[in-house]
Write a protein that binds this DNA or RNA. Sequence first.
DNA 1: CCATATACGTCAACAATGCTGACTCATTTT
DNA 2: AAAATGAGTCAGCATTGTTGACGTATATGG
Lengths: 183, 183
Amino acid sequence: MSDQRSASRTSASAAQPAAAGSNLLFLREEEIRSAQDLLFFAYRDFTNAADVILDEIGLGRAHHRCLHFIGRNPGLAVTDLLGLLRITKQSLARVLGLLVDEGYVAQSPGRADRRQRLLTLTERGQALERRLFEQQRDRLIAAYREAGSGAVEGFRRVMRGIMDDEARQYIDSADTSARGRKG
Amino acid sequence: MSDQRSASRTSASAAQPAAAGSNLLFLREEEIRSAQDLLFFAYRDFTNAADVILDEIGLGRAHHRCLHFIGRNPGLAVTDLLGLLRITKQSLARVLGLLVDEGYVAQSPGRADRRQRLLTLTERGQALERRLFEQQRDRLIAAYREAGSGAVEGFRRVMRGIMDDEARQYIDSADTSARGRKG
DNA sequence: CCATATACGTCAACAATGCTGACTCATTTT
DNA sequence: AAAATGAGTCAGCATTGTTGACGTATATGG
């Protein structure tokens, strides 16, 4: 690979606001653009961590997302899973159908509302989800160790702030139920 | 939407390690799983912020990524862009070709190595990239304000720790060149 | 009880964005 | 002169997202 990249970075005339002396504004913008980089690279490599295992089994990231959210919310209804993933029912059907066919996910009718198909991981699904989890866990633990324990709280606060209200509520309720364990 | 979700969260038997009393391990695992959630939702909503504008123009996220990295690294060589995005030349060609055709990106032969096609944003490309940037900027600024200035450093450190070495070097070199401004 | 809404599933077609493999051409390096 | 590299291109395919249109079972409200 050539060394062009680092040689030319930030030499763009566009990065300089027209007004002179507004170095604060410049730093602010650079800070934001740097955060764009952070989100792209961290997400890319974090999701990538599970890909080798997924490839072996012939599944994709979409399947992993399902396993993750079902594992985290046993008895989740299909509508709720759709709300978390923000994809269409038809997109989910392809992915979820395979997971059910291959015995990773089980469906059972809701007792209160028998129209629902509540989703849980089978033992096989739990085993797979755990293997995938461990890959990402190792990466996160290394990151946490490097960053220092004080950094984690800041990470959580900023990430929470980036997402929209609905996602925040989900995150917050997971937090409280993890500590209080009140079902 | 049903309320099944919050009712059942973390009631999975799988979340409990077999050994009793290892509550530290449990909290650790919950913390990691929560970070998985954070990455998914933050990335989802962050990228989403630019989608409305992209839709109007008939471009996608892949185009945005190109505009971002070219804008941030004027004179970037194609090989280096491929290295940042980690996609194949053929995938990039589709996306980049359109950006060039539509006048968002300009190519010019390298002086040192005339095989290279160095990439820059045209004025049109800069204008579009700015519009997209502003959407994500607003989200980040709100998140930074909510999280507090102390949180930002922690965010940056953890995100940096998640990505692989090559990406870290890129991030670090951007940091130094932004302050020192030495091309 | 009946009308309407909801939860879930399904078929069909299409779009965006990844991938592999195979080649060409220009230029640089050895 | 030979080999490597930077860039482009064609062809085909996989994954995962989208619309639109229906069908069925169950719940809910007048």
